[in-house]
Design a protein around this nucleic acid. Structure first.
Length: 504
RNA sequence: GGCGCGGUACCCAAGUGGUAAGGGAGAGGUCUGCAAAACCUUUAUGCGACGGUUCGAUUCCGUCCCGCGCCUCCA
């Protein structure tokens, strides 16, 4: 069996096949760039990353388009508050988004497109909808007439016919013929950004950009559309209505939705104020790879409760995997090969692929690799491991990491590169109060330098000093050095082949 | 109220009509100058509750309870 995915449209897990040849065309809803994205947002983006990585792993060519919503009420409001032009304001958060993506090892989609770069495409779409009788004008704005689209509600299974008692209603309701109708084009308001169009100046409605850009780059019908589950209604429902009304063809074949990241049993969101940005967690000393691991470890169709305990657990889990890989690459083994090891590795690979085939069940894929780690370590401890067995083990780890992308410790290099950390050349011992003080300092907006890490050279120097102390039997001094390095985030391990160090 | 996602050990979390993966944490042991890493042993007669089907259910069916999300901007 091949890859199976849960399709919101059918409510079922379905066998996935591209519509045309070997290419998978994916449209993924990206962020609204009015502020830094929070890690709940990144849960969805990590899910999308795992999806594209696994499709590639399975031999498909992937064309992924991600939108950047750079015009809406919030971007306009915040840009005005900041005294910046809309485009300059949103650019800052687009830049931050790209840095965050790099820190989280998110592959770049083939295209990232801004809504405001596609106004003419949206205008054209509105004109088509008007011609086909799906749109009407009201007080300078244009609305989509839901009553004329018979399939409305097929994605969300929501029946909005008529007014429902108690339902909260849009502030613009009085302008609409029907509460279900949604805006395609908003009449310009004084002081707000506006674009000229044949039907008057204004700005596009939220849903329109996705329909226009998806169809422009992926065609009228494409393979996969995805986003967070909160987008099912109304966003994706309205995209379907607009697009299919305009073309008369199915829009996306598969609709994939990630469940939310929770905090204390509630959805993480800006409006509840219970959110953490990636930068918040980095400032507290957490590694992007641990965050990626945590957010990837629970299958996307289940809610995931975020806790710091969970983050610690993720960090420890990664260390176990990295230690295993380190051991296998550095330890000396007797020549030859043990056929049982190759067989075991093949088994693990199969289990991992079966897990991911099963609606991207990352937990299963994780279990597969951890079982291999246990068996591999045991084989090494029991002297059953041979030199030539390394290759097949490493191959499985590499394959696994093509999807999970956490084995390589790139955290510090990336934090340095993006200015979140700076190198410290002296292992000075700070007093406890000073350290606490340092931790409380908020990260500067650009993230510059609130984290300090020891240089490799300084670490090596300390290790040399410590080993001299050990040789002379001065274990008090030796332990003191080890302890001080640990406080600086560096773990020392004395092995047969010498002292190994790694950053915690 | 409608639609949807969940309820599995101390925490996180898979899974199956045939008797509970994996990670973290804890306990004991091996190794180590001591650690760390790793290994060995150990931690759910139990999978929200109650009925039903079945030789057998955590897994299927029914009813119910609980948490959360969407129905309004939202990943």
């Amino acid at each position: 069996m091949g890859l199976r995915l849960h399709n919101t449209l059918s409510g079922q897990v379905e066998e996935f096949k591209p519509l045309i040849g070997n290419e998978v065309r994916i449209y993924t809803c990206g962020p609204t760039v009015y502020d830094y994205a929070h890690i709940g947002n990144y849960r969805t983006f990590i899910f999308q990353d795992i999806l594209r990585r696994y499709l590639k792993y399975r031999g498909f060519r992937v064309k992924q388009v991600m939108n950047l919503t750079d015009v809406d009420d919030k971007t306009i409001r915040n840009a005005q508050a900041a005294g910046l032009a809309l485009r300059d304001y949103t650019q800052k958060f687009i830049d931050a988004f790209i840095v965050d993506r790099d820190l989280l090892n998110l592959e770049s989609p083939e295209m990232m497109v801004r809504a405001t770069d596609h106004i003419p495409d949206m205008v054209k779409l509105i004109e088509t909808l008007e011609q086909k009788g799906f749109a009407y004008r009201s007080e300078g704005s244009i609305y989509f007439r839901v009553a004329n689209f018979k399939d409305y509600g097929k994605l969300s299974k929501i029946n909005l016919s008529g007014n429902r008692p108690g339902a909260r209603v849009d502030a613009d309701e009085y302008e609409k013929d029907d509460v279900r109708d949604f805006v395609l084009w908003k009449a310009s308001k004084p002081g707000e950004p506006a674009w000229e169009a044949p039907f008057g100046s204004g700005r596009p409605g939220w849903h329109l950009e996705c329909s226009a850009m998806a169809m422009k780059y992926l065609g009228e019908t494409f393979d996969i559309h995805s986003g967070g589950s909160d987008l099912i209604f109304p966003h994706h429902e309205n995209e379907i209505a607009q697009s299919e009304a305009a073309t008369g063809k199915p829009f996306a074949h598969f609709w994939l939705h990630a469940e939310h990241l929770m905090v204390n049993g509630e959805k993480m969101s800006k409006s509840l104020g219970n959110f953490y940005t990636l930068r918040d967690l980095i400032a507290q000393g957490y590694k992007p790879s641990a965050i990626r691991y945590l957010l990837a470890s629970v299958p996307f169709h289940k809610p995931l409760n975020f806790t710091f305990d969970g983050l610690h657990q993720a960090q420890k889990s990664i260390e176990r995997l990295r230690n295993f890989r380190y051991r296998i690459t550095t330890e000396k083994f007797p020549p030859g090969a043990n056929p049982a090891i190759a067989e075991r590795a093949a088994q693990a690979r199969q289990a991992m692929e079966e897990g991911l085939d099963n609606n991207l069940n990352t937990a299963e894929a994780l279990a597969a690799v951890f079982e291999l780690v246990s068996d591999g370590n045991a084989a090494m401890d029991h002297s059953e491991f041979r030199h030539d067995d390394r290759a097949c083990m490493l191959e499985v780890l590499d394959r696994w990491d093509k999807i999970f992308a956490v084995l390589e410790d790139q955290d510090f290099a990336k934090l340095l590169r993006h200015g979140f950390a700076r190198v410290k050349d002296q292992a000075e011992t700070k007093s406890e109060p000073e350290m606490l003080q340092a931790e409380r300092e908020p990260l500067p907006e650009n993230g510059a330098g609130s984290l300090e890490i020891l240089s490799d050279e300084e670490i090596e120097r300390q290790i040399t000093l410590r080993n001299a102390a050990r040789r002379s039997g001065n274990y008090a001094e030796s332990d003191r050095i080890r302890e001080s390095l640990l406080k600086a985030g560096v773990v020392l391990e004395d092995t047969k082949s010498g002292t190994r160090w790694r950053r915690k």
